[in-house]
Design a protein around this nucleic acid. Sequence first.
DNA 1: GATGAATGAGGTTTCATTCAT
DNA 2: GATGAATGAAACCTCATTCAT
Lengths: 205, 205, 205, 205
Amino acid sequence: MNEHSVVQREARRAERIQRRRRQILDAAARLMQRTGYHAMSVQQLAEAADVSVGLIYQYFGGKLELLEAVIVDILRDFEQTLPERIQAEESPEEQLAGAVRAYCEIIDAKREAAVLAYRESATLPPAGLARIKELELRTVQPIRQIVVDGLARGSFRAIDPELVAHTVLMIAHGWALKHWNVGARMSLDAYVRQETSLLLHGLAT
Amino acid sequence: MNEHSVVQREARRAERIQRRRRQILDAAARLMQRTGYHAMSVQQLAEAADVSVGLIYQYFGGKLELLEAVIVDILRDFEQTLPERIQAEESPEEQLAGAVRAYCEIIDAKREAAVLAYRESATLPPAGLARIKELELRTVQPIRQIVVDGLARGSFRAIDPELVAHTVLMIAHGWALKHWNVGARMSLDAYVRQETSLLLHGLAT
Amino acid sequence: MNEHSVVQREARRAERIQRRRRQILDAAARLMQRTGYHAMSVQQLAEAADVSVGLIYQYFGGKLELLEAVIVDILRDFEQTLPERIQAEESPEEQLAGAVRAYCEIIDAKREAAVLAYRESATLPPAGLARIKELELRTVQPIRQIVVDGLARGSFRAIDPELVAHTVLMIAHGWALKHWNVGARMSLDAYVRQETSLLLHGLAT
Amino acid sequence: MNEHSVVQREARRAERIQRRRRQILDAAARLMQRTGYHAMSVQQLAEAADVSVGLIYQYFGGKLELLEAVIVDILRDFEQTLPERIQAEESPEEQLAGAVRAYCEIIDAKREAAVLAYRESATLPPAGLARIKELELRTVQPIRQIVVDGLARGSFRAIDPELVAHTVLMIAHGWALKHWNVGARMSLDAYVRQETSLLLHGLAT
DNA sequence: GATGAATGAGGTTTCATTCAT
DNA sequence: GATGAATGAAACCTCATTCAT
C-alpha cells in the first residue's frame, strides 16, 4: 500500500467534501435570504444547488442543521473580516471610527444575510442558538478592546465598554434591519459619518 | 321594526366581534411569541384560545392575516403608549431622555412581542409589510419632533433628526433584541442611563 | 342547555369514532395480512379504507400504533371467543378435547390474522409487545384451568398445566403456521382428531 | 498456459468468494435477528460486515436475495445438524426421544435465527418461499422416518407419521417462538423431558 | 476486485383550510 | 354563531441501487 497516495486520496476527499458543502450552503443561504427558512423546501434547495435531495442529507444532518450552518457561516465571516480592518497604530478615536465604518460596510455587503441571522436564529434548537450567541460575542470583542484601551489612555470618558460594543453592534445591525428606512434616506457613508460623530462626541471627555 | 333596538343589536354584535377577535389574538400572540409563527398550528391556537378551528376562520381570513393582526396589535400598542409619556413642558434634553426611557420601558414590558415583530415581519406579504413599516415610522415621529424642536431652540448641535430617531429606536429595540447579552449584564435602568448619557453628550452643542 | 341532547350527542360521537376506527382497522388488517406491515403504505390504506390519509392520523397515533391495534384486535377476538366454547358440565377429557377443537377452529377461521400476529409482533415497541404477550397468556388461561381441574379430579397424570396449555397453543397455532404443509395433507377435522388423540393419550393416567 | 495453475486460481477464486459471502451473510444474520429485515439498511450492513456497499451487490443480487440466503443458511444448518444426532442402533422410542432433544437443542442454540425465519419468510418472493418450505420438509424427514420404522416394528400405535413429524417440529419451534413464556418458566431440559414424555405416552400402544 | 458518492422514488406525517351540521 | 371532522397537498427524510473511479 502506497502511503503517499493514501494521504493524497484523503486530501482529495476532504477537498471534495468542502466543495460540496460550500455548493449546498451557498444555495441554501441564497434561498433562505430570499424566502426565509420555512419557505425553502429541501426539494427546492436540491434544484438550486444542482444536487439530489439525498446528497444534502449526506452532508448535513437535516434542514435545521443546514440553517445553523448557514448562520454560522455568515457570522464567522463577520467575525473574521472585522479584525482585519482595525489598525493598531491609530488613536482610539480613529480606531473606533474605523471599526464602526468597517462593521457597517461588512454588514452592508451582506445585508440580507445579517437579517436572516436575526429572523431565523430563534428557530434553532438551544445548542445551536448558544453557538450563534457565542460567535456574536466574539465578533464584538475587538470593539470592546478598543474602548478598554481608550479608557486606559484617557481618550474616552468613563463608560461601560460592553455597552459601547453593544451600541456599535446596533449601529451596524441597524443599517441592515432598518435599511428600508435609513437606506432610503441616506447613503451608507452619510449613515456612518453621522453615527460615528454621535458616538465619538458621546464618548469624548 | 324598532330602530333603537336595531342600533343596539348592531352595537352588541360589534362588541362581541371585538371580544372574539381579542380572545383569539391574545392567544395567538402568546403562542407565536413562545414558538414562532410557523411552529404554531391553527389547531393548537384553537385549543389555546378555547374556540373551534372554524371560528378562527370566521374572524380572520387565514393564518397569515392573523400574523399581521398580531404584529399590528403589538406595534399599535407601542405607537399609542409612547406619546402619552412625553411631557410638553420639559426641555428638549429632558424630553429626549424621557422618550428614551419611555420607549425602552415600553419595549421591555413586551420584549417577546417586539422580537416577534422582527422575526416574522418578513413572512408577511408585501401589503402587510408595508403597513408594519408605516406603523413603525409613525411610532418614532414624536422622537423626531423632539429633535426638530431642540434644533430650533439651539439645544442640539446640527444633526439629522431622522437619524436620531432611528438611533433611539435601535436603543430601545436593542434592549429586546440583545437582551440575552445586555440584559444579563445590567439592569434596564443602567442601560437607559448609559445610553441616554451617550446620546445626550453626542447631541450636545 | 338541554342535558339530554348533550348526552345524546356524546353517544353519537363515541359511536361515530368507533365506526371510523373499525373501518380503518378492518382495512388495515386486510392489507397487512395480504402484504405485511411494511409493504402496506398509509396512502394505500387510506384508499382501501376509503378515507383520507389525514383521517387515519386523527384516529391512530401513527402506523405503528395501527399495527398494535390490529394485532390486539385479533388476539382479543381469540381471547373472547375461546371461553364461549368450553362447556362446564363435561369431563376434563371432553373439555380439553373441546378446547383443542375450539381453538383450532377459531384460529382456522382467521389463519392469516394469526400468522400476522407472529410475523409483525417483533416490529412493535417493547410496550406494545408486552401488551400482546399479556393478551396471549390470558387467552390460554381457560386451557390451563381445565388441566388444573383434571389433575385435581385425577383425570390426568402428573404434568405441568402450563406446559399443556403451551402445547395446545402450539397445536392450534401450528395449524396456521404450517398450513401450507399440514393443511395440504389433511382436513382441519383430521388434524384436530389426531392431535387430540395424541394429547389425551399422552395425558392419560 | 499452465493448466494446473488455472485450476488452482479457480479454486482460490471460489474460496475467496465463499469467504466474502460468509462475511456478509454472518453480519446480515446478526443484524436481521436483532432488528428485522426491514430495519436493516444495506448501508448499515456494509458497515457491520466491514465491506463497501457496492461489494454487497457483487455477491448478492439485492437485499431480498440476501434475506433468502440468510434464511436458507439457517435452515440448512438445522437440516444438516439434526441427522448427525440420530443413532441408528437405538429403539424407535429412544430414537424419537433423542430426535426431540436434538431438535430442541439445535433450535435453542439459534433461537433468534429460528424466529427470524418465521418473521421474514413471507417477505420473500414465491420462488424463495418455496425453497424454504422444501428445506423444512427435508429437515423433518428423519423424524418422519423414525415413526415409519417404529410403526413397522409395532413400537407405536397407528398414527400419521407426517403429523408426528409436524408435532415434533412444533415442539422444537415452540421453544423458540414462545421462549418469552416457557423459557421463563422452565429449563430447556425440563421442557424437553416433559414434551417427550407427553409425546411418547401419546404414541404408546 | 473494491469503493462509496450520488441518485430519486417513495415513505410517513403534518396542518391550513373547508363545510355540513 | 359555532363546531370539529375531514381533506389532501406538500413537507422532510431514508435507503436500495448504480456506476465512475
